Simulated assay, not measured.
Amino acid sequence: MSYRSYVAIGDSFTEGLNDPLLADPPVVAGQVTRYRGWADRVAERLAEQEPGFAYANLAIRGKLIDQIVESQVPQAVEMRPDLISFCAGGNDLLRPGADPDRMAKKLASAVRTLRGSGAEVLLFTGMDPRDTPIMRVARGKFAIFFMHVRGIADLYGCRLVDIWSLQALRDWRAWSADRLHLNAEGHRIVAGKVLDVLGVPSDDWRMTWPAREKVDARLKRREDVQWVREHLAPWVGRRVRGTSSGDDLDPKRPGLTPLS
């Protein structure tokens, strides 16, 4: 199927953290690095097949599902694209008291609205958190929500990208130093899977990682301590303050414009 336009909505996963657009982004105080990510990679491939292909990415890091539904969904509907991708819920599920059933009802209502615009809708399960200590305790909630996502995809005739079973992402070499976001290689793998679901030939997601040497236990402990100091502590601090890394940020591609 050929798509002439595509709008991506969601949080940091769809914004593209941590896949810098530049191989060596400059370090400037107060500057927000522009990220590429799987959605940009998919759009680039789709643009090769359709002259004049237009793309918008409304995703902003840290957003909760209610915020995405309230702000990004109406914008996407107004643009009337051929294809809309919607991935959300991870930020909600990491918070105490998250209710996956309520979240699913919110998602279903939004998907009904998106499908009503005539667009093809792409939904996602998320990564199985069993290998991530901070997220493992909420694995049950993740599983319940993503089972709902599967049901919603079936009910409304959406295409589903199953990240939960994507084995290539089980290796830490697909993840950035914060252990919560994919790196460039991880985003490349996801883009390959998305393209495959859309019927565009791609085997990138079928890759297997070469064997690696066993990591020294002392080095691993030092890395864990560094991760707590540089990534976990700031994340917990934002939760306590009720702030988000995406506060005051605008979408990187707010308009549905041709992709050069």
Rank of each mutant, 00 (worst) to 15 (best):
I9A: 10
E120H: 12
A110P: 01
R34N: 11
R206Q: 12
P254F: 08
G118L: 06
R130N: 08
I134C: 01
D203I: 00
G16H: 02
T14M: 12
L160V: 08
A43V: 06
V28L: 14
F142S: 03
V215C: 06
K193W: 02
I60G: 10
Q226M: 01
W38G: 08
A59K: 09
G37S: 02
L64D: 03
I189W: 05
R173D: 07
G246D: 04
P129N: 01
G97D: 03
R229M: 10
T257F: 09
Y3F: 15
L169T: 11
V200T: 14
V28A: 07
S245F: 14
R179F: 07
K105N: 14
R61F: 00
N91Y: 11
I84D: 02
A233H: 08
V121F: 00
S245Q: 15
R170G: 11
E50T: 15
D162Q: 06
L46C: 01
M79P: 04
G62H: 03
D250S: 14
R241E: 05
G246P: 04
H148E: 11
L94K: 10
D250A: 15
C158F: 01
V73R: 01
K252V: 13
E15C: 00
D178I: 01
H181D: 09
Q49C: 12
P74H: 07
L160N: 05
K214C: 05
E48Q: 11
V200S: 08
G52P: 08
A88R: 02
D224A: 15
R229E: 13
S12E: 06
L123C: 07
R150I: 10
G246V: 05
D178N: 06
I163M: 14
Q226N: 03
D40N: 12
L198F: 04
K252W: 07
S2P: 06
G199C: 09
G151H: 13
A8W: 09
A56W: 05
S85E: 05
Q67C: 04
L219P: 00
E230L: 12
G140R: 12
A76T: 07
P25V: 09
L107Q: 05
P51H: 00
G237A: 06
W227C: 07
W227N: 07
D154G: 01
A217K: 13
G97W: 04
S202L: 03
E44C: 02
V7E: 02
R222Y: 09
A56Y: 06
P251W: 02
R115I: 08
W209E: 01
L219T: 14
R45I: 05
A54E: 13
S165P: 05
Y156F: 13
D216T: 03
V225L: 14
Y156P: 02
S71L: 13
E223I: 12
L166V: 07
R221E: 13
R206T: 10
P25Q: 06
N57G: 09
C87Q: 14
D92L: 09
I144H: 15
G89I: 03
M103A: 10
V200Y: 10
A39N: 09
A143L: 10
R36F: 04
D250P: 11
A88N: 01
